[in-house]
Amino acid sequence: MTKRPSEEDDFFISDHGLNTESELDILRSKLSRLEEEKIALKHKLAEEKLAYLISTSFADIIQDPRRQKAIDMKEVHKKIIQQTVAATQARRVQEVMSSYRLAGYTTFTFQNKYMGVRLDTFYNRHYYEPYYIFLPKDKPDIIERHTVPFFIPIKLLAKRLLPDNLDSLLRILHDLLLAYVAKREQVKALKCHVDTSIIKVNVDDASFSAVEIIVPDEDPR
């Protein structure tokens, strides 16, 4: 379940002209539906894989039906259980990873001294470029490295929220990145669907928070 930003979160977003709450609500709604469909499909696929693993494992052990009585059935049972547990664990890991990616971010260890966070961006059913931040693994109280665009106030957010509210920091950063990517892609789509020799679309800053659309006056005649 996606948690709505608090008033404090809205303060950070609105201060920089990137508050697109209505757009984010639509994205969250679509994302929730896609997540449910994806998990259902993964369950179905995992069940089919599990059935295949069990059947093939059993077939490998009992290759000749005429020798079935001579086989230690306890060993057969043990191997089947092992295959079942391995398949279930693999399915669970895949579900967790998929859920984290759908939620927007995943964490990992980098060079054995940093906690890395990957922030995925998406808009209109497409994934776009990921962004990364790196915090000290043992004491995640500062952001030492990152690939977040310069116009997002990551230092201010880190100063106010770390180390106690890392989850809030990631949620706010993710919302800001989604807003940026959505605006950028909307401008690209607009330019593709209008005659730019007649209608001018000017972007005044790198964050796409100020876009000017100039439509010429109609011919007075």
Rank of each mutant, 00 (worst) to 15 (best):
S55Y: 11
K200D: 05
A182Q: 06
K188L: 12
L173F: 03
L190H: 04
L53C: 08
H16N: 01
K38D: 07
E144F: 01
E218D: 09
L157W: 05
D167P: 08
E23I: 15
L156T: 14
K42L: 02
A86F: 09
Y123K: 02
A210Q: 12
M115D: 10
I143L: 04
I61K: 06
K159V: 00
K78V: 10
Q94V: 01
P130L: 12
Y128N: 15
T109K: 00
F150Y: 03
H43C: 10
R67N: 13
R28P: 09
L31F: 07
V85L: 05
V211W: 04
S99Y: 02
F151L: 10
D60T: 13
K69L: 11
V85T: 04
Y52Q: 15
L135H: 05
A179Q: 02
D175L: 03
R160F: 00
Q63C: 07
Q83T: 12
S209G: 01
K30F: 12
I213E: 02
A86T: 11
C192H: 08
V211S: 05
V93H: 06
I80D: 07
E7M: 15
M73I: 12
G17A: 10
L53N: 13
S98M: 15
G116V: 03
D72N: 15
D141T: 09
I133N: 10
S168K: 11
E36N: 14
I143P: 01
K49S: 14
V181D: 03
Q68C: 08
T84P: 11
R145E: 07
E129N: 08
I198R: 09
P136D: 02
D64G: 00
M97I: 09
L178F: 09
F208D: 02
K113P: 01
L166P: 04
L119Y: 01
I198W: 04
V117I: 13
A59Y: 02
Q68M: 13
L162T: 00
A90K: 00
I80Y: 02
K183D: 05
C192E: 05
V148F: 06
P5G: 14
A179K: 07
L45D: 14
K159D: 06
S99Q: 10
T2I: 12
I152S: 08
F108S: 06
Q63G: 12
K79W: 14
L34G: 03
L50V: 06
R184L: 10
R66F: 11
K78E: 05
A103E: 12
K188W: 04
E35K: 13
K78C: 04
E95P: 05
P216T: 07
Q186D: 15
